[in-house]
Design a protein around this nucleic acid. Structure first.
Length: 308
DNA sequence: GCCCAGGTGAAGC
DNA sequence: GCTTCACATGGG
């Protein structure tokens, strides 16, 4: 090619990175469709199949079709975020130091609001491996087929709200959703017919956006916080699930019983302006550290209660 | 077989 | 305000 021609779109690209742990990021329960494949990861962002891999200083990306503008990828992986600045805002206490030491390089992704919302509607009281199964079925059955490399097994996009709204509740039930089928069905209808506008939430503040998400059946504090954090990037959102609750009890309040309210209050003030980021470190740390699964939240809780 | 999972909403106290 | 329970299902 001559230099006079405009730069042709490419299907491979490399981006400089630093402090980016792709494995921790893609396995930390934010996104549920990434598959490890030999040295890289395969997944779907929007309507694009892609393969990514990382070295210490480079993120390598391959798509099935040429790409002229990579902004969608930069947004999704949040490549512009300087992790140092985020980590510097974390409280300097033993639990956070341990969590950062264990999974430094873990990042928050920026996902599509509908995919994120629908995914976490499937998540309640399910293990991550099961959530992945549910979502795989939804995509396989109701997602739009995507262009993949020659010879590659077919891959589909995450199903649109309109497509899931057109499903019967039984059809969703068949995707192993159980009692979550009704909530997903209602949410899909609300989004598809415009009763809730997920794009508009971007312009609201965190509390107002949360208030809107609460209008959906099956969306409470935890699921709304996941969407606010993983899709909209509200850094103050702090999802408290069984693992994070366990982390808070074990690491910050051993031998004390804190109820949900004071625990939430603690998280609102203690973890700083990037509390949601800190939460993700605690979550992944608890799930991956040796013995993390032992000692459930209430085990060994002393009778002395913190006055509320 | 048993326990538990990135929960929520309702009921009872 | 807090605790308990039903809601389905399957992984380990």
């Amino acid at each position: 090619m001559t230099s006079a021609e405009p730069t042709p779109p490419e299907s491979v690209a490399a981006f400089p990175i630093r402090d980016y742990d792709l494995e921790a990021t893609l396995t930390s329960g934010q996104a549920f469709r990434w598959q490890r494949l030999d040295r890289g990861w395969e997944g779907v962002i929007g309507a694009r199949w892609l393969r990514v891999s990382a070295t210490a200083d480079t993120l390598c990306v391959q798509t099935a079709e040429p790409v002229s503008d990579w902004q969608w990828l930069i947004d999704y992986f949040q490549l512009h975020v300087e992790l140092d600045r985020v980590l510097a805002t974390f409280p300097d206490d033993p639990p956070m130091r341990a969590a950062v030491a264990a999974c430094r390089g873990l990042r928050l992704l920026r996902q599509d609001p509908w995919e994120c919302l629908a995914s976490f509607l499937c998540s309640s009281s399910k293990q991550i491996v099961q959530i992945r199964q549910i979502i795989a079925l939804l995509c396989e059955r109701y997602g739009e087929a995507l262009v993949v490399p020659p010879g590659h097994t077919p891959v589909s996009a995450f199903p649109t709200a309109a497509r899931l709204a057109a499903c019967t509740e039984d059809e969703l039930w068949e995707c192993k959703l159980g009692f979550r089928a009704r909530n997903l069905s209602f949410a899909a209808q609300m989004v598809a017919d415009g009763r809730i506008d997920l794009e508009r939430l971007r312009r609201l503040d965190c509390a107002a956006a949360r208030h809107q998400l609460f209008r959906l059946c099956g969306v409470g504090r935890k699921i709304s916080d996941c969407v606010l954090l993983f899709a909209y990037g509200f850094q103050e959102a702090f999802p408290i699930d069984v693992w994070v609750r366990r982390a808070l009890h074990q690491l910050y309040f051993p031998r004390r019983h804190l109820t949900a309210r004071p625990l939430e209050k603690f998280t609102l003030t203690h973890f700083g302006p990037h509390a949601g980021y800190a939460q993700q470190y605690l979550f992944h740390y608890m799930r991956t550290k040796r013995g993390g699964r032992t000692a459930p939240p209430s085990a060994g809780a002393a009778p002395d209660r913190l006055r509320t």
